[in-house]
Design a protein around this nucleic acid. Sequence first.
DNA 1: GTGCGCATGTAAGAGGTTACATGATTAA
DNA 2: TTAATCATGTAACCTCTTACATGCGCAC
Lengths: 191, 191
Amino acid sequence: MSHRYLVLGLLAEAPMTGYEIKKRIGKTLKSVTSVSYGTLYPILHRLLDEGAVQMEEQVQAHRPVRKVYQITERGQQELAEWLQQPPGADQIRREFLLKLYLARDLPPDTIQQFLRQRRAATLAHLNELQQTQDSLNGNMPLTQHWVNDYTIAMCQAELQWLNRLMAQIEANLAEHNVISEHLVSATPAQR
Amino acid sequence: MSHRYLVLGLLAEAPMTGYEIKKRIGKTLKSVTSVSYGTLYPILHRLLDEGAVQMEEQVQAHRPVRKVYQITERGQQELAEWLQQPPGADQIRREFLLKLYLARDLPPDTIQQFLRQRRAATLAHLNELQQTQDSLNGNMPLTQHWVNDYTIAMCQAELQWLNRLMAQIEANLAEHNVISEHLVSATPAQR
DNA sequence: GTGCGCATGTAAGAGGTTACATGATTAA
DNA sequence: TTAATCATGTAACCTCTTACATGCGCAC
């Protein structure tokens, strides 16, 4: 994305440890990306090597050393340059959509259930987002608010799409049932 | 995602060459994912090794051999099993959103321009999608229509969000200008 | 006494991209 | 004549995840 700039960007806000960076991303940026320690720590080491960040060790009793990272001027410059470049295209993998696409030959009931599960998951996600929005209310930087808003808008749009689609499938099924009933009621008359 | 199942799924519709699979994905599935030959061919080789697909060589004059792949019963079973598993979470990397988030200290004009560029890109994407929708109209499997619809809905929601956000920033800027004008008009009076 | 929070890291591997190699046919 | 379409593939590389290793303090 690269995560390099995410780390740099967060350190531009305040000095932090790797652990804190990860927590931060999990809390306020999980709609944008996610990181594992296996990515995060090597990035920090590399940024340090390259002089984009500084590190200060805080020795603690009964704990590993806290390594607090802080952005340097070089780091800030690199970040500013990156921000000026036009952003790369979105990289999106929705296994959910792929499965839906490949569900061509599955019975409507199965598809309906699949969509219901997605709706539940999306709804849960939306609630979580709105809680974050409320809990951080006020003392949130504008840009974070915007990003949150974006994700909420996407969730809502998806829910509408899901409801439309499910209604449509439902209607189709009902129609078939009506036809079946016709046949059932017509059959005795033909006897 | 894995791309393995995408390939398997497409071969479940019709026998195809690697080249055709790639074209297909570029045409009707580019909102879901993308593949490079460096991924695609090794996947086909592996599926062949494992007996999930069969391969028939069609020799041609002045061309490389066409290697037509076809799904086997084993492959169909594997695909069906995968389809029954609940889908993994969406994997999303929006560099655009990350940059917006990190744009905290950039001037509103710069941000505004950034958003305008995104709007143009999204609009272009939307037009392209709607053209696909129209050009394939009718003889498109239902599920493909659904997926297309999904992507269109997401684009539209994003455009609305962009417009809302831009109007909001605009309003904020105008307000500041009013204040500035106040100051400007107030200043001579104070002299 | 069990699990969560704090706090660092590494190694192996999965999964993917990019760039390269090859080369004829056909339409603008 | 230039670009696109057809058609296969490999090797080097990048990025990221998963699983592992370590271990105390504190709340329930």
